[in-house]
Nucleic acid binder design. Structure first.
Lengths: 234, 234
DNA sequence: CGTACATTTGATTTGAATCAACGTTGGTGG
DNA sequence: CCACCAACGTTGATTCAAATCAAATGTACG
């Protein structure tokens, strides 16, 4: 975690924070937030930077401000499974465990707001509401993880791809239904998220394209042409 | 949830509770526990009883006292995935969501201690420590769920079976290493937990038996003969 | 003791992995 | 500006692990 403590960092005021209403800190009233924000440090990452590693001391709790963070686990022989994607507003890590038990890596340009776990616990003594808020985020993540257990255990490759595209589309809900968006992950990352190989992912993308359910241009911009039919596949 | 509210129930004192040190209520001091315990109702279930259903109002938080509870999700066509096994001391449900988003069913004879979610929130106003404790249990479950994502997404059938047997063995840690224990799940349930079919589960059990890594008698009693080698397969 | 259910085992199929080229994209330096 | 190269992605041929289909056997229980 040297890269977090050692670097230049911004002490953004929460007032300007783009995820103020989404992050776990949103439960705090203005006075408490003022105090809490003083504990935070933001840090930026470029594509593919390691944010923390399995086995290292759990020193920081993070909140994704910008970009995407992939959380993954590894088997001894290098097989990888992405167990979560952290979008803006999502919490990173926890304040319970003594060690991280997975790896976190930035996907594209990413900005994260960090708090020291010890400071959060200290803060909580006078502001216990923060626990309820962290509990909310943790429960949400548990829900997502269990949804993904169903996907990995019981869905076919086609259903997995369709579900994945709908998940991405969910994060562009503000836009019009058929709005194009950038697929943030490489094929290998999609494979590692869905428990597949790159080839299988590629084949099923081609499939959906030939069926005119989706369109892809400029290499990574995607339009969902037939949302309802995609949903029925997922 | 009629079966919880309507039935005869015991008002066990926490002092006699066999999972007092494991449950989320263990964070409370004696005074608070006294008050908290008054909110609880215990209920017993026989094998295969539905405890709660996806889509129903999230009214109760539970704590498993005895037996095992399987938490599962279903696809439209009936495909099932067990997303968690609740052992004694494990928390059941959450206090955040408005609805249950999975099914819970007893496996064998089971006893559960229930608290109304509304009452917990009310209790928390004067005892915020309960949130920290529930957070601990939730974080633990998230860790288990992510471990299982790796298993479902990236492990082979043999590795899945080996991991499953070691998981069961973990829950008999007090016993000697090669102590026989009862496999609490039917083959179909094991399959639904590991994202496999009954036939594949059966074949790999036979495999491990012929390799002398495990032994099974009386239909469902299991001994792990070679713990280390089983571990190397998982 | 018989019926229903659970489990095992065998034969076959199949969806996804693997192996193997080939195409595309984007960055670098001549 | 283009040639080169490395990383990424697609497509095809083949293999393989697990699913499916199909009996047969084992077990629990009224």
């Amino acid at each position: 975690m040297n890269n977090i403590t050692s670097n230049h960092y911004n002490l953004d005021k929460c007032n300007n924070c783009p995820v103020r209403d989404l992050s776990f800190c949103n439960a705090l009233d203005n006075g408490a937030l003022e105090e809490f924000s003083a504990l935070s440090k933001t840090k930026s990452f470029q594509d593919g930077q390691l944010i923390f590693s399995e086995g290292k001391t759990n020193e920081y709790l993070g909140s994704v401000i910008l970009g995407i963070v992939k959380i993954y686990k590894l088997l001894d022989d290098g097989r990888q499974q992405i167990v979560s994607l952290g979008f803006p507003g999502d919490m990173l890590g926890n304040i319970i465990d003594s060690e991280y038990n997975y790896f976190a890596e930035s996907v594209g340009d990413t900005k994260i707001c960090f708090y020291q776990v010890a400071r959060i616990n200290n803060f909580a003594e006078s502001n216990p509401a923060i626990y309820r808020s962290i509990l909310g985020k943790t429960t949400e993540q548990l829900g997502h993880a269990r949804e993904w257990l169903l996907l990995l255990g019981r869905k076919t490759a086609q259903e997995k791809i369709a579900s994945f595209l709908l998940l991405l589309a969910e994060h562009h809900k503000g836009d019009s239904p058929n709005q194009a968006f950038k697929i943030p992950l490489k094929r290998q990352e999609i494979a590692d998220f869905l428990g597949l190989t790159i080839e299988t992912v590629s084949r099923h993308f081609s499939n959906l394209k030939s069926k005119q359910l989706i369109r892809e241009y400029a290499g990574h911009m995607l339009t969902i042409v037939d949302y309802d039919q995609l949903k029925s596949l997922a």
